[in-house]
Structures are given as C-alpha cells and as structure tokens.
Amino acid sequence: MAQRKMTVTVTVDGVRYEEEVEPRLLLVHLLRDRLGKTGTPIGCDTGNCGACTVMLDGRSAKSCSVLAVQADGSEILTVEGLASGDEWHPLQRAFHEEHALQCGYCTPGMIMASLDLLQVNPDPDDTEIREGLEGNLCRCTGYANIVRAVRRAAAESREVSGA
C-alpha cells in the first residue's frame, strides 16, 4: 500500500535528478515512468532476463532488482547515454555490424552487460563471453552473432586503447 515518500538523487546519463519516491519504487520504474528513460526495457520480474541492465556506479546491475532509494546518490549509465551525439559506442556499432539483434528488446541490457564484461575482461574468448552474458536472455538471435559482436567490439576497443 501507499508509503511515505523519500527523496532520491541520481545522475542518469549525465543529468542530475531529484525525485520524491515511494521506498518500494523499482529503479527501472523510476527510469522509465518518472524520468522518461524508456531505452531501458523490462523483460521479467525475477531478475532472470537482464533486459533492464544498466551501469550503476560503474558496474552492471539489473535495474528491476534495485529499489530507487538504494540508488540514491548513484551515477547511472543507460544505453541512451552510450553514444556521443551520432557517434555510437563500439558495442553499438558491433551489434549493428554483426546483426546481433533482431527485435532489439534485449539489446540495451545485452550491450550494458557486455560493457561490464569487457571492462573486467578486455579480451574474452567465446566461452568467457557466453558465460559472461549468461544473465541476459535473447529469444531471437541464438546468441552466435552477439558473441561475434562482443568479440568485435573488444578488438576495436583494444586497438583504440593500444594506438
């Protein structure tokens, strides 16, 4: 039932927001329903599908499994904050080039989980990619092209940082 409200301050994709929320409000609903950040979708209610994955203070988190009040003071990066203007992030480019999406519903979460994976392991092999993305479900692609995309983005990112 309706609860006493609390103030939450979050920075999402570089913009600071202060919102009055019920303590039970999920972070993903804060993002989608209150802040209009609808780039992050919801695919399940048990934390299994990963569609709602965002970066929370630099690590991936399933935003359906975090309360908005738990994110108070946090820095959040969503798929909407990845590109600089029309310049896509290497992962966005790689998903496009390798046809790693069909309906695209899992894509924001898949890209954000891949971002975390490459941060921890900049040169993963196929098994490491598959295991690293185990918490993100896709029903369209069969994952083969997602694995290729992550490999491609990793190679591209290493080239950039090596140069």
């Binding site: 989608r32 609808t38 780039g39 992050t40 969503t78 990845l82 590109a83 080039e97 046809h99 999406l101």
Partner: peptide, 21 residues
Amino acid sequence: RRRREDARLVTGRTRWTDNIQ
C-alpha cells in the same frame, strides 16, 4: 545490408508500447 531498424534499437530510442505515456 546492415539493418536500418538497428539505429533506434541500439540507442534505446525505441517505441515499445509500454513506453507510451
């Protein structure tokens, strides 16, 4: 051909029904 649909899907500028307010 790489898909033209992807531009909105990889950037989160999608129009899912639940996005509508």
